[in-house]
Design a protein around this nucleic acid. Structure first.
Lengths: 113, 113
DNA sequence: CCTCATGGTGACAAATATGTCAGTATTAAC
DNA sequence: GTTAATACTGACATATTTGTCACCATGAGG
């Protein structure tokens, strides 16, 4: 059994899904794969549909799961940025596979209705 | 906007996640990638932790999303089997990427505590 | 002092996803 | 007539995830 955050998983793919399964997580990882370090307000501009509270929560969870790294600069006004860790960066093939599949799935849906 | 089941998605990856995001869906697709057509009771044996109701619901959703195909044989006792459609089968790279990443993530977790 | 920018937090509400339990239909075999 | 196998369905309870709203702290610049 794999144990993580008080939950138990049978397989590593269940573990993987628990990490990347959040509503906005793949999107956040995707954004961070492209634009290296991003500040909170930059992320808010990239994802106007996520409210700030939710955005922060998803970022915190990704941080707990060691996918991203949060850096606080001791300046005023505050500056904090987020970037992928090594293991986070290694999600690239997953994100790519999902995007690629999503495109072809979208095509399939489009051509049968 | 991509519209599907009354929901709107900005990107195809959000669409993809809405299809494969269920608690057991990747696991089900993974099982069907390996053992071609599977009957309900075979799936129940493969996943003893999913209760029947939930299993059927996930299967129905995958069917609605055109990932799997359900075949009913007009015999008694009833026989029904499930197999991947072509677009469902094309999820293979996604499932593989998730499994591969899950393994390395598991290793990372293991070696830092 | 007042305002602004930035990056937050806490309490709570609503929505969605999961899980549990009991019940249904068919017909063949005993 | 009773049981057994298979594949379900409906009503409901619980858990988990997401969203909303109001609020806080800092220090610079006016």
């Amino acid at each position: 059994m794999i144990s993580h955050k008080d939950k138990e998983f049978h397989t590593t793919k269940d573990l993987a899904l628990s990490v990347i399964g959040g509503r906005w997580k793949i999107a956040l990882v995707w954004a961070l794969l492209q634009n290296f370090p991003l500040r909170l307000n930059e992320l808010q501009k990239l994802f106007p549909d996520i409210n700030q509270r939710m955005l922060i929560r998803q970022l915190r969870e990704l941080e707990e799961d060691l996918i991203i790294e949060r850096t606080v600069y001791p300046v005023v006004p505050p500056k904090v940025d987020y970037k992928l860790t090594e293991i986070g960066y290694s999600l690239e093939p997953v994100v790519t596979a999902i995007c690629t599949w999503g495109d072809s799935y979208h095509d399939v849906l489009g051509s049968d209705s």
